[in-house]
Design a protein around this nucleic acid. Sequence first.
DNA 1: AATCCGCGCAACCGCTCCGTT
DNA 2: TAACGGAGCGGTTGCGCGGAT
Length: 384
Amino acid sequence: MGRAPCCEKVGLKKGRWTAEEDEILTKYIQTHGEGSWRSLPKNAGLLRCGKSCRLRWANYLRADLKRGNFTGEEDELIIKLHQSLGNRWSLIASHLPGRTDNEIKNYWNSHLSTKMYCFRRLSNQSLPVILNVTERKGGRKGMKDNQGHSTKKENNGNSSSNKPMEVFIDEVVPFPSTPSLEKETFPSAVEDSMHLDPYEEDNERRIGVMPGSCQHTGDGDGYVENSMLCPTATVSVVEKETDIFSLFESNESSGMLCFDNILDNELLQTNGDSTLSQWGLNQVSVDLENSGDLCPNRPAAINKQVESGDCGTGDLTTYFCTTSCFFDDCEVENILDWDWERNELWDEKECIMPSWLWELDYNDKDDRLTLENNDLELHGSAVA
DNA sequence: AATCCGCGCAACCGCTCCGTT
DNA sequence: TAACGGAGCGGTTGCGCGGAT
């Protein structure tokens, strides 16, 4: 027994709104104001469901709506808010004047979420795997046949409605979680990109690329603001027998295991001898007020905050970085920053896009971001 | 020129929340 | 306190445009 319909559906029009309908709805709301959506269609003389009227008004006809592409600032804000709030689109929209929840949701699903490179543990596999999450493929779907029936195939109970985000797996690669698994296949692109053989003499050492983020951790009043400033690819060296995936907490909403989950949980509460540093990551605190000159070794967003002076007395901000860029005065080996304008990952120092992160068959070694042996030494000594 | 395919986005659906009776 | 109904939210669908073949 289903739920009673929200309105009498018989005889109601569905589908795209016409200009005439828009005009009727707009004039009615301008005269009578918003609200009473259930009775509105009847009173206004529209053959539409009240919900449909509300949606049309809220998402399209309202005068205060902003049109046009999302700006870089809006992108950043959406990412940041989504990190904190999850899929609460209406809440996110309330922070972006002129943007609707529907618009932001669509934008997130089509632009922002699809380039995330995430880790995921498949339920039927004992070994963690790396999934290459690529952009959504497939054109029209669910087309109707000429009788107007949906042609969508049944999926044997694996309803996509249970999956918040579609994930397309190009390649599944077993991830060696401990040295005892050292002969497992290692992601070729990762291995290759390092110009290192992870299986040579020093077998204690293991190289991995973890998609990550710079993490901004509040203002000293005990509140941890889980806001992501930028996703930063972190090159880390793992020296101890640690199952990285034991650190991951399942993302409740998507089931994806993302690097941010690590930062959201245990790593935020760690100290110098923690698992954080085992992974070649260090927590760096910056005194925003007294930080002096801008440091190229910091994430750009931190420097931007310092530069703008957008901070109060004694404000501290914290971010995580690889060991090689831990010290402000040391030589930076690599800081990979997401370029929201280009929608690409860039090496801030070399000004190149490390395409090996996305293209597993990338062959042009000259343009490739490299991690030389001395980087490895730097990682190793600092971790120790 | 015709067809296919990828994608953006408007709109629908079903559920939950919350105020009222 | 329970029942009811309106409003709002988030997930999903599918239309239509434009580029590729």
